[in-house]
Computed example of a mutant assay.
Amino acid sequence: MTWRGVFPAVTTKLKQDGALDLPALQHSVDRLIVHGVSGVILLPMLGENASLSMDERAQVLTAAKEAVAGRVPMLSGLAEVSTHAAAEAARTYEKLGAEGLMAFPSIAYKSDKRETVKWYKDLAAASSLPIMIYNNPIAYGVDATPDILEQLADTPEIVCIKEESGDIRRVTDIYNACGDRFAVFCGVDDLILESAALGVTGWVSGMTNAWPEECVRLFDLCRAGRFEEARPLYRLLTPAFHLDTHVKLVQYIKLAEHFVYGAPEWVRAPRLPLEGEERAHVGAVIRDAIAQLRGRAAA
């Protein structure tokens, strides 16, 4: 696998009653690949991983694997409570055709540095899949700091980190501590230009679900150092990118997909669809981006 490019965190498409909508999922995966993404990540947090049963996760990966058809790498999110459950899930996802894991820390326990290192080493030993560490201390309270990465450098299965600490300085700190040992991906949409300027090799993106062609274009411009061309597109999309950092990012991004190409917006309880002023506000942000992108295309 080449750890470069845009890897969208794919939303899990659902029907209004909360059941899986696998045809809609396959359509969305195909749409992403046709528009140039370099890989897809199924069952991320944005894909409501923790709200699905293991049987449902298996259905998602099987359907997605069929849609991908070998065109790009397919990763699976891995979000479990115990080391035993994480190891079992890793082996299951490997059998189902995942080619890599985006692995959360324990989602129910705030591990210290020693425990975090052990968690990822044990997970690496559970399967042969390469691992991207999901680092989101804001949401999960566990920070995979550069010194933790240094302790994981001797574990070959750990190859990448999705950096979502919110501190843009962290990208440089990782490179200073570890050199090029790990691929570093931007993990939050509204820091992609800044992260690319500091040398990230990839982007795990939420809003790429709605605008894959535009997000791939933005990433490619940034990676090529063409920031004068990238900035107008980045500024246009940044209000929508800010929606990726909210606790309701699942609802917000699904609503964006719904407005852009008619994807189902339904979510699994306890999440609820947006309504009232909140829906109006989020809808206005999305519709403004749609209108501005149309204006750019027509210019």
Results as ranks from 00 to 15, higher is better:
161 I>K: 03
150 E>D: 05
133 I>N: 00
154 D>N: 15
188 V>S: 05
118 K>A: 15
188 V>L: 08
166 G>H: 10
186 C>V: 13
121 K>G: 01
166 G>C: 11
182 F>Q: 05
126 A>W: 12
200 V>Q: 01
121 K>L: 08
152 L>I: 07
166 G>W: 08
184 V>R: 01
148 I>N: 04
200 V>H: 02
185 F>G: 02
176 N>Y: 11
164 E>L: 12
214 E>H: 15
169 R>V: 10
150 E>R: 11
140 Y>D: 04
137 P>T: 10
127 S>P: 07
117 V>A: 13
139 A>D: 10
162 K>D: 06
177 A>P: 06
126 A>R: 05
162 K>N: 07
179 G>S: 04
124 A>Y: 00
129 L>K: 03
167 D>Y: 14
182 F>K: 02
116 T>K: 06
169 R>K: 08
213 E>Q: 10
136 N>R: 04
210 A>N: 13
132 M>Q: 09
158 I>T: 00
207 M>P: 04
172 T>H: 00
216 V>D: 03
135 N>G: 04
188 V>G: 09
145 T>W: 02
126 A>F: 14
144 A>H: 02
128 S>R: 06
187 G>Q: 06
115 E>K: 10
171 V>Y: 14
183 A>R: 08
163 E>S: 14
159 V>N: 06
205 S>N: 03
186 C>R: 04
141 G>Q: 07
213 E>T: 12
190 D>P: 07
156 P>K: 09
206 G>H: 12
165 S>Q: 15
175 Y>E: 00
207 M>S: 13
211 W>K: 06
186 C>G: 13
180 D>W: 09
186 C>T: 11
186 C>I: 11
167 D>K: 15
176 N>A: 15
168 I>L: 09
204 V>H: 04
178 C>L: 07
141 G>A: 08
185 F>Y: 10
192 I>Q: 02
214 E>I: 12
170 R>A: 08
186 C>M: 15
152 L>C: 12
122 D>Y: 14
154 D>M: 14
181 R>T: 11
218 L>M: 05
159 V>D: 01
157 E>I: 12
131 I>Q: 02
175 Y>P: 01
201 T>D: 01
147 D>W: 14
157 E>H: 14
194 E>P: 03
161 I>N: 01
123 L>C: 05
140 Y>K: 11
215 C>H: 08
131 I>V: 10
134 Y>A: 00
205 S>Q: 03
125 A>R: 13
194 E>F: 09
170 R>H: 12
200 V>A: 04
188 V>D: 01
193 L>R: 06
115 E>F: 06
127 S>H: 12
133 I>T: 01
176 N>K: 07
195 S>D: 04
209 N>I: 03
159 V>C: 11
172 T>V: 07
202 G>I: 04
187 G>D: 05
201 T>C: 02
150 E>K: 13
144 A>F: 05
171 V>N: 08
165 S>P: 09
197 A>H: 04
200 V>Y: 01
155 T>E: 07
204 V>R: 03
212 P>D: 07
172 T>M: 05
140 Y>W: 12
147 D>C: 11
164 E>T: 15
218 L>A: 00
178 C>Q: 06
195 S>I: 03
169 R>N: 14
142 V>M: 08
149 L>F: 13
210 A>G: 12
198 L>Y: 05
207 M>F: 07
